[in-house]
Write a protein that binds this DNA or RNA. Structure first.
Lengths: 202, 202
DNA sequence: AATTGGTTTAACCAGTTGGTTAAACCAATC
DNA sequence: GATTGGTTTAACCAACTGGTTAAACCAATT
């Protein structure tokens, strides 16, 4: 592993857990097993190093979205693919959402740069949903609400992990991990029930 | 308004927007229209001032939960009351969730103190849900999942506001505020549809 | 008139941070 | 064997932070 990759790996770990403000260049150097001078030798400033970590992190999320979209013809196909792809990513990087949200709230002007760099095919999924509504496959729902609902159900439990662990599971780790195991299918079924056409054959 | 209240108001504004680490005592003093010396005269340290803001903030959330629970006999009553009470609170303090989550992720040991101070009647709502499941009023669902789902749908859009504004609404403020207006009933109906018993009278 | 308590001003301290620099070191390459 | 480039060490700087202090100020109270 090259020194540069080594630094990026260490920086990702520190930045994701601490955020930009609380992250310390010294800690990144320690984590990478090098010294601070060499850190600045590779990435001149903290800001430059952070930029790379941040845009890489966002791209990971984007990919789980676009990937699921490309491989799906129906909405329910997309839903199941996306939920599991996203959850799989978050299992490996549980600090990812809080990191992204924290930094976007800290400096919301950053999102403009991000928006131009990383084009997310939002109109495609909106269209897919709208079409299924028109065809009577799912109930009438605004695509924006449905999209927000999906992402909320997936992401929020990770952002609120400490609070859920404590106030809902009383710090019982077993109960909590059992909850997490079934979470994916629970989300999929919950959403499918909420948007299916009721069969009122009275 | 007393100086103390004045300081607390200013501190709340700054802490909620910036978080503990990024908040500056000087900025709080400026916001309160006083100087830094007087700030330390009232609240000896930054930590002490923060503690008060934080526990006050958490209490507000707790109250919208317990209040809705006390005034409801059925789950759907609780659901509608809670969703609207919570959203009403967040309309006034949109930075509240991100603040709480950020600080709990920064120092998760803080949550233990919080848990002992602020007892949240979680078992009551769990029981209410379990009873309705047994009585066949709603579909079989684990209370933990349902509770997490409710809170996710309410809170997440506030935490992810900049990202939703940009990637879903293309910075179109009108579309976004129209989305927010209908959000409360959208959440209620979405959940009710997801947990109702299907009437399969074939 | 004297006292009191909230308040301001301004300077200061110690600690930490991101960043820089110069010198030496060392292994691979030429 | 000389050169080169990555690397370390250690010291340093300027800026900023939370916090303290002493002195003066001022309005209300006694």
């Amino acid at each position: 592993m090259s020194t540069e990759e080594n630094i990026l790996l260490a920086a990702r770990k520190v930045f994701l857990q601490k955020g930009f403000m609380s992250a310390r260049m010294q800690e990144i150097a320690d984590e990478a097993g090098i010294n601070k001078a060499l850190l600045h030798y590779y990435f001149r400033t903290k800001e430059k190093l952070f930029e790379q970590i941040f845009s890489d992190a966002f791209q990971l999320i984007k990919q789980s979205f676009t990937g699921s979209l490309l491989n799906s013809l129906t909405f329910s196909e997309f839903l199941r693919a996306f939920v599991h792809a996203y959850l799989h990513l978050l299992d490996q990087m549980p600090y990812l959402p809080q990191f992204i949200l924290q930094e976007l709230n800290r400096d919301s002007s950053r999102i403009i740069t991000l928006f131009e760099q990383q084009k997310v095919p939002m109109s495609a999924i909106k269209k897919l949903i709208a079409t299924e509504v028109e065809n009577g496959e799912i109930i009438a729902i605004k695509p924006e609400h449905l999209i927000v609902n999906i992402i909320s159900l997936i992401v929020f439990p990770f952002v609120a992990r400490p609070i859920i662990k404590t106030f809902i599971f009383n710090q019982n780790i077993e109960d909590y991990s059992r909850f997490n195991e079934g979470r994916g299918e629970e989300i999929v079924q919950f959403i499918l029930r909420a948007i299916r056409i009721p069969k009122n054959m009275i």
